[in-house]
């Protein structure tokens, strides 16, 4: 017998089909012989006559099966070769994908590092407006109308010494959509270079109602509402007369707390408490 792999002639019986040179197992019987063997083993006498008369492809198959097993040698090598080539192509694809993902990952990391704790290179545009002026803000507009002193420590003893409670009247409009882009970041109050947060609507509301500044506004006032008209509360120094209110305009699509686009400010004079401080009601009310 001749080995299908290395073509060495050897004695099939002596070596049980195993090539003494390369170790390949060589089958002596043809596919048909093995088929007959199955019939013998299971006592089946079906002769496959009908199947043999079916189309040319079957007869071609039969022709192939009649070929000695050794002719399958080059075909087997071809299959092994194509498998090796497939592995190489797969490896190259993984390698290229790895390079691409690593490159973009490093770039993303560098961008994140550049935009992190480091100083912001962008200067926030600071835009000044007049009291009563309607200005574009995010998807709508805002209008800062007036600032009113509501109480000092004499009228509201719970206030910290030397401080007063004021309210700033603000009106706004939006597209009325219940979307985050209509959210308003709570404003800051600046007095002589000192900035303070606005009092949360939740804490300011009861005092605003008693002292005539209602309704209290919060950051969601234009979310799902087409307009709002109300008051933000602040504490500031008791002797402060001139103040500046800041509204920060954000792009809320930024996942990390919004991207600051601009800061709008309005200078105001604090009016006395004798003015009745009552704003309009929100649409919801």
């Amino acid at each position: 017998m001749r080995c299908y792999n290395c073509h060495k002639n050897f004695d099939y019986e002596k070596y049980y089909g195993i090539c003494p040179k390369c170790g390949c197992f060589n089958q002596q019987e043809t596919r048909e012989e093995r088929h007959e063997d199955l019939h013998d083993r299971f006592g089946d006498s079906y002769d496959h006559k009908e199947e043999r008369h079916q189309g040319a492809s079957d007869s071609r198959m039969a022709g192939v099966s009649e070929e000695p097993r050794r002719t399958a040698g080059p075909a087997g090598r071809k299959r092994t070769g194509s498998r090796g080539k497939g592995l190489l192509i797969f490896s190259v694809i993984i390698f290229a994908a790895g390079i691409a993902v690593l490159g973009s990952g490093i770039r993303a990391g560098l961008l994140a590092a550049a935009g992190s704790a480091a100083q912001s290179d962008e200067t926030v545009p600071l835009i000044a407006h007049e009291a009563g002026e309607r200005f574009d803000f995010q998807q709508g507009s805002l209008q800062v109308l007036e600032a009113v002193k509501l109480a000092d420590r004499e009228t509201l003893p719970g206030l910290e010494e030397g401080m007063q409670l004021i309210a700033v009247h603000v009106a706004g409009e939006s597209d009325g959509e219940y979307e985050d882009y209509n959210r308003i970041r709570e404003p800051y109050l600046e007095t002589d270079g000192i900035f303070r947060y606005s009092i949360s609507a939740h804490e300011f509301e009861p005092y605003g109602q008693i002292l005539g500044a209602r309704p209290a506004l919060d950051g969601w006032e234009l979310t799902g509402e087409s307009s709002c008209d109300g008051w933000y509360g602040f504490v500031t120094e008791a002797d402060a007369q001139e103040i500046r209110i800041w509204f920060d305009e954000y792009d809320w699509s930024d996942w990390d707390g919004g991207k600051l686009l601009a800061a709008h400010c309005v200078d105001l004079q604090i009016e006395g408490p004798e003015t009745e401080a009552e704003g309009g009601l929100t649409d919801a009310e």
Binding site: S91, I94, G105
Partner: peptide, 29 residues
């Protein structure tokens, strides 16, 4: 050669994913 490419590619892929996850999760990667 295939195995070498595969291993290096897998290492690059893993490292790239780590950078991506790191930077997307609030870190710099």
């Amino acid at each position: 050669v295939s195995v070498v490419f595969l291993v290096i590619g897998a290492v690059f892929l893993a490292a790239g994913l780590i950078f991506w996850v790191g930077s997307a999760g609030g870190g710099t990667g």
